[in-house]
Measured scan of single mutants.
Amino acid sequence: KYSDMIVAAIQAEKNRAGSSRQSIQKYIKSHYKVGENADSQIKLSIKRLVTTGVLKQTKGVGASGSFRLA
């Protein structure tokens, strides 16, 4: 599940300011076997996790910027 992968990526990075979408994508692609549409799936999952309150956006708008666990 992409949401689990995103949470794992943010936990692994341990950046106080949060993790960027690009760094999350890079982590997921190197640690998991994902399909061609992974980028758009990650983007959608990040937006969903922010609206449900699992992630907090520290910089930027939408799916860009930095995110950390709430």
Rank of each mutant, 00 (worst) to 15 (best):
M5N: 01
V50W: 03
N15M: 05
V50E: 03
I46Y: 01
S30H: 08
S19M: 11
E13V: 07
A9I: 03
Q25E: 13
A12C: 13
K33E: 12
A12F: 06
Q25L: 15
S45K: 06
K1W: 10
G62H: 07
Y32W: 06
L49G: 01
I10P: 01
Q22S: 11
R21Y: 15
K47R: 11
M5K: 03
Q57R: 10
I24F: 03
I24T: 00
Y32R: 02
A17N: 13
R48S: 07
V54R: 05
S23W: 14
I42G: 01
Q57N: 06
G60I: 08
V50G: 02
A70K: 05
A17F: 14
Q57H: 11
D4T: 09
S30N: 08
V34Y: 03
K1S: 14
Y32N: 02
V34E: 03
A8V: 05
I28Y: 00
S19R: 07
K26F: 09
V61P: 12
S66C: 15
M5V: 02
K56A: 08
V61Q: 11
I42C: 03
G18L: 04
S64G: 13
I24K: 01
Q41I: 12
I24R: 01
L69W: 03
M5P: 01
Q25D: 06
Y2Q: 00
H31W: 04
S45T: 15
S66R: 15
K43E: 15
E13I: 13
R48Y: 14
K59N: 08
K43S: 14
S23D: 10
V34S: 03
V7S: 02
V34A: 04
H31R: 05
S64V: 08
I46E: 01
L55E: 00
H31I: 05
S45G: 12
E13P: 03
L49K: 00
S66W: 14
D39K: 07
E36K: 15
S20L: 04
S64M: 11
S23A: 11
K29A: 06
T51R: 14
T51C: 14
I10T: 01
K1P: 09
I6D: 01
G62K: 06
R68A: 11
R68L: 12
I46R: 00
S3Y: 13
Y27G: 00
K29S: 06
H31S: 03
S30M: 10
L55W: 01
G35V: 04
H31D: 02
S30L: 10
K1Y: 11
K29Q: 07
G60V: 06
V7I: 14
E36I: 12
S45Q: 13
L49A: 02
K26V: 08
S64W: 09
Q11T: 10
N37M: 05
Y27N: 00
L49F: 02
G35T: 05
A17R: 12
S19K: 04
R68Y: 14
T58L: 12
S20D: 06
I46F: 03
K56H: 10
K59Y: 09
S23I: 04
S19Y: 02
Q25C: 15
V61C: 13
R48H: 13
I46V: 03
S30A: 12
G60F: 05
K59W: 10
R16L: 10
L49M: 11
G62N: 07
N15S: 10
S3L: 09
G18Y: 04
G65D: 14
K33W: 06
K47G: 06
K26N: 12
D39P: 05
K56T: 13
G53K: 05
G18C: 15
V34D: 02
I42T: 00
A63N: 13
Q22W: 09
A38H: 05
K43P: 03
K47P: 03
V34F: 03
Q57I: 12
L49Y: 00
T51G: 08
E36V: 12
S45D: 06
A8F: 05
G65H: 13
D39Y: 10
S3M: 12
F67K: 02
K14T: 08
L69H: 03
R68F: 13
G35K: 05
S64D: 13
E36G: 11
R21D: 07
G53N: 03
A70G: 06
F67I: 05
I10H: 02
E13C: 13
K33H: 09
G62S: 07
I6E: 01
I24D: 01
Y32P: 02
K33T: 10
I46A: 02
K59G: 13
K33R: 09
L44F: 07
Q25A: 14
H31V: 06
S45P: 01
T52Y: 08
K29L: 10
I46P: 02
S20W: 04
A9W: 02
A9K: 00
A63I: 09
S20C: 05
M5R: 02
L44H: 08
I42A: 00
E13Y: 08
K47E: 13
G53C: 06
T58R: 06
G62F: 07
Y32F: 13
D4A: 11
K14H: 12
S19V: 11
H31Y: 05
K59C: 14
G60L: 06
R16C: 15
L69K: 03
V34K: 02
Q11S: 09
Y2K: 01
G65F: 14
A12W: 07
Y2N: 00
G18R: 02
S3C: 15
T58D: 08
S20P: 03
V50N: 01
D39I: 09
S40W: 13
Q57F: 15
T58I: 13
Q41P: 00
V61K: 13
G18F: 04
V61M: 10
G53T: 00
D4Q: 10
N37D: 13
K29I: 08
Q11C: 15
I28L: 03
T51V: 13
F67C: 04
Q11R: 14
V34I: 05
T51W: 10
S66G: 12
S23L: 04
Y32A: 01
S19N: 02
T58K: 05
N15Q: 06
I24V: 02
T51E: 14
R21F: 15
L69S: 03
V34P: 03
S40I: 13
V7D: 01
V7L: 13
T52R: 12
A9H: 02
N15F: 05
K59T: 08
S20I: 03
V61Y: 12
V50T: 04
K43I: 14
K56W: 12
R16G: 12
R21M: 15
Y2D: 02
R16I: 11
D4V: 12
R48L: 12
Q25T: 15
V61G: 12
A63Y: 08
A17D: 10
R16A: 13
D39A: 09
V50H: 00
Q22I: 09
I46C: 03
Y27W: 10
L69I: 09
H31K: 05
A63M: 11
V50A: 02
I10K: 02
Q57A: 10
S45I: 13
T58M: 11
K56Y: 12
N37V: 05
Y2A: 00
T58E: 09
M5T: 00
I46D: 00
A12Y: 07
V7Q: 04
Y2I: 10
K14Q: 12
G62P: 04
S20V: 03
S40R: 15
K56N: 05
K56S: 08
E13A: 10
T58C: 14
A12R: 04
S30W: 04
K14V: 06
D4K: 10
A70P: 04
G65I: 15
Y32T: 04
A9Y: 04
R48V: 10
Q11L: 14
L44Q: 10
Y27I: 02
Y32C: 05
R68P: 02
Y27K: 00
A17K: 10
